[in-house]
Amino acid sequence: MQVPAPFEYERATSVDHALELLTLLGPEARLLAGGHSLLPMMKLRLASPQYVIDIDDLAAELGYIDAREGEVRIGAMTRHRELLESELLAAALPIFRDAERVIADPLVRNRGTIGGALCQADPAEDLSAVCAAVDARLLIRGPDGERLVEMRDFYRGPYATAVGAEEMLLEIRVVIEPGSGSAYQKVERRVGDWAVVAAGASVKLAGGTIERGRIALAAVGAEVTSAEAQEALAGQRPSDRLFAHAAQLAAAGCSPVTDQRGTAAYKRHVAAVLTERALRRAVTRALSEPPR
């Protein structure tokens, strides 16, 4: 029987309460959101927090997907299922629905949250790549107030983020621009599994050229974005040749390891194929975007 090591349990009733508890209990406390990353880690004793602060009750306060001031804003306690089913997200940022369709399974998606997934920062986690691909900014609150962090500064490597011991992630923000499109592609061994490799892409088109292209890979190394590939896209007219070129750069820049999910060479090959497909779909979507 797998059970977590003993811990003391607190249940936060508001964001302010959760922050008070984090300050009070110190660095041995962990926030428990949907529990579908942290509890399995605790059962395996890979995580043994002394205190667990359950923020399940914050699902009402932090569970939302809104469009405001030219941005989509997603509360940190928004569950995977809500991300999957949101028509607002599907229209504005289809990369989310692409990814959510292949994140775990319906039961896990009923509990797991975007904030929990991002803060767990598993190297094969999908939403970190999604957020990196769309240049998300993350709103973090702590005792000293709020700050906005770019996704590339948020992710600090496997299981490490910019969120401090007395802070919590409140919201994910993505700017919505006309002429943009996004897509996510993933290969897994079986339905609901972690990615062997996954690739997210977003583009902003202007006057027939790619003004800005973003590529983010999951499960192939700590660096989720590919600067060289993005530079190669900027200012170019979209074409199959360009997608293939950028995909090769992204694949060359990643650092997969051989494990039970495949060899490094195989993963690098898949990274290129998926990047190319994600780019093509993102551009197709940007071109077919309905007028707003």
């Binding site: 428990l32 529990g35 509890l39 399995p40 359950d54 319906p106 039961l107 009923n110 509990r111």
Partner: peptide, 16 residues
């Protein structure tokens, strides 16, 4: 079922 939605009860604390 948790509030009508299926969840995996091995990954929910009784306290939650």
């Amino acid at each position: 079922l948790m509030d009508g939605a299926p969840v995996k009860s091995c990954t929910v604390l009784a306290a939650t």
